[in-house]
Amino acid sequence: MAEEEPVVRYERNGPTAVVTMNRPNYRNAQNSAMTYALDDAFYRACADDEVQVIVLAGAGEHFSAGHDIGSPGRDVDVDYERRAGLWWGHTDKAGGESRFAREQEVYLGMCRRWRDMPKPVVASVHGACVAGGLMLAWVCDVIVAAEDAFFADPVVRMGIPGVEYFVHPWVLGPRIAKEFLFTGKRMSAQRAYEVGMVNRVVPREQLTDTSLELAGEIAAMPRFGLALAKKAVNQAEDLMGRHSGLDSAFGLHHLAHAHNAEVEQDSLSGMDAKSMKRAAE
């Protein structure tokens, strides 16, 4: 099903590029069309010398409810031009090879690509930030959350150890990460602030202005200095095992998919968007 509106909007606000996910009728669930549109927008912003900072936001009532696992616009069988790595396409492959190739590209690979953008990125989060939505927020350097924002990675209900971009221990700390995954419960914006995952929490009506104000403060710094500072912090995280940890967790993620496909209804253990929402409630 074709989308009536662009799945990602791009606009300039002075030295800030505002990138907005635009599937509000589906809570900004991420299909591949959105993934590659986000990549286009981020590349455009990074290539524009007038842009100093990027703000990532979501249209409608929610930032993002995660990967698209059931909307009419789900496009898992479409073979987009690959950008995040040299793995082959998935559409003419079967079983675990197909799933691994696709998720290596559109999930893990894209998030790694975006995390390494040389320009600072501010996530402006409201409403649901769940599973794949967490991955998008976590590739950003700073997170501003509205008071109504909530965060969750409930995929353990599918028998899967967590989303593909598995940085939970680094952004939450090991014990909070375990509770977060073991229970699948929502974490409030205030709790996310307390554990250091979120930089600021503001009333919903102040979210956009606060995000843009923070972006403006960052934009006043020298571009190359910002790029080097970001790289220095990212390298420090990788020295703490983040990069190799992602590879290890990605393998466990696909072991879970394969196990589900063998003993359950499908690789998601028969769960869909509606059943996941019911379980959360």
Rank of each mutant, 00 (worst) to 15 (best):
E5W: 14
V7W: 08
V7S: 12
N13F: 09
P15N: 12
V19D: 05
M21C: 10
N28Q: 07
N28F: 08
N31Y: 10
A33Q: 12
T35L: 09
L38Y: 07
D40T: 12
A41R: 00
F42I: 10
F42Q: 01
F42H: 03
R44A: 10
A45F: 00
A47S: 13
L56H: 10
A57R: 12
G58V: 08
A59R: 03
G60Q: 04
G60F: 02
F63L: 05
S64E: 04
G66M: 04
H67S: 13
S71M: 10
S71A: 13
Y80T: 09
R82N: 06
L86D: 12
L86Y: 10
R99N: 10
E103K: 01
Q104C: 07
M110A: 15
C111V: 03
M117C: 12
M117H: 02
P118A: 15
V121A: 09
M135K: 00
V139E: 07
A146E: 04
E147H: 01
E147N: 00
E147F: 00
V156A: 14
I160H: 00
P161M: 08
E164H: 13
F166I: 01
V167M: 09
R175G: 04
K178E: 14
G184H: 05
K185P: 03
E194L: 15
V195F: 14
M197D: 04
V198Y: 07
N199V: 02
N199C: 11
R200L: 14
L207R: 05
E213V: 11
A220V: 09
M221K: 13
R223V: 15
A227D: 02
K231Y: 10
N234W: 06
Q235I: 04
E237T: 00
M240D: 11
M240F: 11
R242M: 09
G245F: 09
A249T: 05
H253R: 13
H259S: 11
N260R: 11
V263I: 14
D266W: 05
D266A: 04
L268Q: 03
G270N: 03
K274W: 14
K274Y: 15
M276I: 15
M276S: 08
K277L: 09
R278A: 15
A280N: 04
E281W: 03
E281C: 01
